[in-house]
């Protein structure tokens, strides 16, 4: 709200300056106008128009369609839901909104449990990504500048292979007669294979492994820009290295931690592939429930309602994080 006013206030003086006729000849005034005004207005329009158009076409339009379907009712038809707007072809149009799907979401504890299950998996995975990713990012940031690209490349390297292949590689490692069990048995460390696949452990492992780079990269970007002289100053003033880390590095890297946590947490909540392939039958996550609603129950309105509520569930923690970040920015 205040953002809008702010932008408008900024634009006004700019226009005032450009439209003021200069004292010089008309040609030079025109040239000034052309040079200053056209590129400025156009450039700003293009720069803000691209993300706006992107948001409109790839986020808001699909979301509007999903919202629309969530307010319809199930039907045996193509597509399998009722129309919201019924028009008899002449004068009467009936708008029929069905909020039953949302009410059912609240009534049945399954959905609540699934949302909670997803949030838990996402939160625990984010925490582990942070605990593992932070030392990695710090290590890379403290390397000599010419070696950092190599380390970063190693972090990004897994993305060169499809996610599905990497998940299957983990299955090959973890399964009953997989690589890990075979090695442990042949070394005589265990005599019965460990059960690792189809467990919550496998889901956490898969999610942390997959999303770790999303944590490391923003953390690295923040840590790399930190002013080393601050640490030197802390040392000069008699601070032990661990204390300097806790009071200087850690608070200053907070934006990186927030960005990394969001990049891990948000997709992890909606994660479907990893729990489906690596999780056990008792791994209850919202992605699976959504799939069941859409494909097994053929209840597109219900599936859409689950998706809409998932967005709301996601927006709240993100807003909280954003607020936290803004406050830090203000104080810092």
């Amino acid at each position: 709200m205040s953002g809008g006013d702010h932008t408008a206030a900024q634009a006004a003086p700019g226009q005032g300056v450009a439209s003021r006729p200069g004292p010089g000849p008309a040609v030079s005034w025109l040239g000034q106008r052309l040079r200053l005004r056209v590129p400025k207005g156009l450039g700003r329009g293009v720069v803000s128009g691209i993300p706006l158009g992107w948001l409109l076409v790839f986020f808001l339009l699909p979301f509007a369609v999903v919202l629309k379907i969530s307010l319809a009712d199930t039907a045996i038809a193509m597509p399998p839901y009722t129309a919201l707007l019924d028009w008899d072809g002449e004068a009467v149009a009936t708008l029929q909104l069905n909020f039953g799907k949302y009410l059912f979401l609240l009534e049945d504890t399954l959905y609540l449990a699934a949302y909670a299950g997803s949030l838990k998996v996402a939160a625990v995975s984010t925490l582990f990504c942070l605990l593992i990713g932070y030392p990695m990012a710090l290590f890379i940031a403290r390397q000599p500048a010419e070696r950092r690209p190599l380390w970063l490349a190693l972090v990004i390297l897994p993305f060169w292979t499809s996610l599905l292949l990497r998940v299957y590689a983990w299955i090959g490692l973890l399964q009953h007669n997989g690589v890990i069990n075979n090695i442990l048995i042949s070394l005589g460390i265990i005599d019965q294979p460990l059960v690792m696949m189809q467990t919550d452990f496998a889901v956490y492992l898969g999610v942390v492994y997959t999303y770790l780079p999303f944590m490391v990269l923003p953390l690295y970007a923040t840590l790399e820009k930190l002013d080393d002289t601050l640490l030197e100053a802390a040392a000069d003033l008699g601070s032990a290295p661990w204390k300097a880390f806790l009071t200087v590095t850690l608070p200053l890297s907070r934006p990186g931690m927030v960005a990394g946590s969001m990049l891990v947490f948000i997709p992890a909540v909606g994660e479907f592939v990893i729990p489906a392939l690596m999780g056990g039958p008792d791994t209850l996550m919202i992605g699976r429930v959504l799939w069941d609603e859409f494909f097994n129950n053929r209840d597109w309105p219900m599936a859409s309602a689950v998706a809409v509520v998932m967005m709301v569930v996601l927006v709240i923690p993100v807003m909280l994080l954003r607020n936290g970040q803004n406050k830090t920015a203000e104080h810092g």
Binding site: G3, T7, L52, A64, V65
Partner: peptide
């Protein structure tokens, strides 16, 4: 926030 508000005003239905 600005772009979000502007965009929200022009939602078209399928």
């Amino acid at each position: 926030r600005t772009s979000f508000k502007t965009a929200a005003a022009v939602i078209a239905l399928a």
